[in-house]
Write a protein that binds this DNA or RNA. Structure first.
Length: 270
DNA sequence: CGTAGACCCTGGAAGC
DNA sequence: TGCTTCCAGGGTCTAC
């Protein structure tokens, strides 16, 4: 389940491998993933363009191409990129789109086919991806964060963290971890937080996202990059998918909050 | 306007 | 053993 740190890791991997590759051929095995174009348009759009740069915003991957073109890819739950050398195309189950370049087969694989692709004749991705600020953006300071909290008074804090309109890139796992680290009950409304808690929460968001990027993301069952490498942040998870609290030995509670499986320690988070 | 819930999809785990 | 049911959840859409 890729969230910001995992997508950042994939972006860095793609950047290292495929920048300056020219797309020679595109095989679309599942055209449902292409959201704003037909299969034919998608292929025509990409053929003969060179990959200039790969960027990330929130959980979106952005491929900047020649001729002011851009392809935006979202991995959703299970999306992965595999890069194979030219002597082994090696199509496997759940490969949906294969980009052939001079040196590689770049395969988009997604066992649940939830991922999405969009293409644009525009490289200003902020115009096309309308989501909030990056957690590690230095412009995200306490003033702005306070305003966001104020705007969402009635919403519970977990839903707020997951809402990409405000801070982007946080998914369910990191939302759980952040609230645990900040000792905040996920059922709290934004208006329940005092000044100190708001300050702690902002610091913890930045700290955890930064740390997870350093550890190349979290691998729970499926996230990988560089074909089969995995991230290591799962070794640092304190509450998500845990049974017992690392701090106080209380039983971790799991319940559905904001329509997502939410893990928290009722003793430490209140 | 905001929000809760359904939906997309599949594999794996749990239940029977 | 083998079947059915449930669960995972990001983002989008619909219903209230």
């Amino acid at each position: 389940m890729p969230e910001l740190p995992e997508v950042e890791t994939v972006k860095n991997y793609l950047n290292k491998k495929i920048v300056n590759e020219v797309i020679l051929k595109v095989d679309v095995l599942n055209e449902k993933l292409i959201k704003n174009a037909s299969k034919k348009e998608f292929i025509f759009f990409l053929i003969n363009e060179k990959i200039i740069d790969v960027k990330r915003k929130g959980k979106y991957l952005i491929f900047l191409l020649t001729n002011n073109k851009m392809m935006i890819s979202h991995l959703r739950m299970e999306g992965k990129y595999f890069i194979n050398s030219k002597n082994k195309k090696n199509i496997t189950k759940h490969d949906h789109i294969i980009f052939e370049t001079e040196n590689f087969f770049i395969k988009y694989n997604d066992s649940r086919a939830f991922g999405t692709f969009n293409i644009y004749y525009n490289q200003n991705y902020n115009e096309e991806i309308k989501i909030g600020i990056e957690p590690l953006d230095e412009n995200l300071n306490l003033n702005i964060f306070n305003e966001m909290i104020l705007k969402n008074k009635k919403k519970n804090i977990k839903s707020f963290l997951l809402d990409q309109k405000y801070i982007c890139g946080i998914g369910n796992i990191y939302a759980n971890e952040i609230l645990f680290e900040a000792s905040i009950d996920p059922k709290y409304k934004c208006s329940d937080l005092d000044e100190k808690q708001i300050q702690i929460l902002l610091n913890v968001i930045k700290k955890i996202i930064k740390r997870a990027i350093d550890k190349k993301g979290t691998t729970i069952s499926s996230f990988s990059f560089n074909n089969d490498e995995i991230g290591s942040y799962q070794n640092y998870l304190k509450v998500h998918s845990k049974k017992v609290c690392k701090k106080c030995d209380s039983k971790i509670v799991k319940e559905k909050i904001a329509n997502r499986g939410t893990y928290y320690c009722p003793n430490c988070q209140k």
